[in-house]
């Protein structure tokens, strides 16, 4: 049996949780969460941790030079820097609106990169 302390990042409450795993890595128990999201977070964090990646992409011909972007859904934690590598090379043309798909599949994750801000054309 092994115990791991986790802090839930599901919401700003930041519940402190304790997860118990057996020798095979199976999750035996999760304690300390105050809602089901905490339980789900802990299970995912122990087996396949994921994150939303947020950054900016260069804009051409816009009122602003950069537009903020995010991965539409979580991507595996291990893929964060692969995502950043692709984001760094991107440039998009204005206008751009919240929700516009910048890249349909980032770093082979199957997750789209979408704009989170608006940039009007110059």
């Amino acid at each position: 049996m092994s115990k791991r302390q986790l802090i839930c990042i599901g919401c700003p409450l930041g519940c402190q949780m304790e997860a118990e795993q057996n020798e095979d890595g199976e999750i035996v128990s999760i304690k300390g969460n105050t809602c089901p999201r905490g339980d789900a977070y802990a299970r995912k964090e122990l087996t396949c941790p994921t994150r939303i990646v947020t950054s900016t992409v260069r804009v051409e011909g816009g009122m602003r030079h950069m537009v903020s972007v995010k991965t539409k859904e979580d991507v595996p934690k291990g893929k964060i820097f692969d995502c950043m590598g692709e984001i760094r090379k991107l440039a998009v043309a204005a206008p751009i609106a919240v929700g516009d798909v910048i890249l349909p599949d980032i770093a082979g994750t199957g997750v789209a990169l979408v704009a989170t801000g608006n940039v009007d054309a110059r």
Binding site: P12, I52, T54, S55, S68, K70, V98, G117
Partner: peptide, 21 residues
Amino acid sequence: IHNGFGLHTFKEELTGPEYAD
């Protein structure tokens, strides 16, 4: 531009610019 906004207001996790929007 990071996420984590709006969990109470919109019951979803938004970035700052999206929340403002």
